[in-house]
């Protein structure tokens, strides 16, 4: 008896990510839906895409994506449709534009500047001629005592 009670309790739990009844019959279109779902944010979740999310809203969005695909939208059109409705916040990867150019260019800029500094540094190090003693005598003596363990 308790077993059945427990099972009934289970029915009240929230749904879990992509449900069997959501899946489209056309496997190609379903695959496209999955790819799109990975870049859309479940708006009420923390940093989760709608494909992985258990939230009711994520399910609605997943169904919406599939609805648009069935209606003949391209992947881009589906994304645009969702962004129009929910705002840019829904995209897990911000589209490139002037206001977030810094986000996209931060890595390359830092790599370029850092790389440049590193190259200048290495050049200077190797330009100063032949190798000389790198540890002062005093330092070497101290190191020797330490090494003498």
């Amino acid at each position: 008896m308790i077993k059945y009670l427990l099972l009934i309790l289970m029915l009240a739990t929230p749904v879990l990510a992509v449900q069997p009844d959501e899946i489209l019959d056309d496997p190609v279109m379903e695959a496209r839906a999955r790819v799109i779902s990975k870049v859309l944010r479940c708006l009420v979740c923390r940093n989760e895409n709608i494909d992985d999310s258990n939230a009711e809203l994520a399910r609605d969005l997943r169904l919406l994506v599939r609805e648009r695909l069935v209606a003949g939208d391209t992947d881009q059109e589906v994304e645009d449709f969702i962004v129009d409705r929910y705002g840019e916040y829904v995209l897990l990867m911000p589209v490139f534009k002037l206001s977030n150019a810094l986000l996209w260019f931060a890595g390359p800029i830092m790599l370029f500047v850092g790389g440049w500094i590193a190259v200048v540094f290495i050049r200077r190090k190797s330009a100063s001629g032949e190798d000389n003693e790198t540890l002062s005598l005093e330092e070497q003596a101290k190191l020797d005592t330490l090494m003498a363990d």
Partner: peptide
């Protein structure tokens, strides 16, 4: 800017992996 944006896995996969 007052804009609400998300930066999630797709961005990091793209921007971090090359390093």
């Amino acid at each position: 800017t007052g804009a609400k944006v998300s930066v999630g896995a797709p961005f990091f996969n793209l921007a971090f992996t090359p390093f």
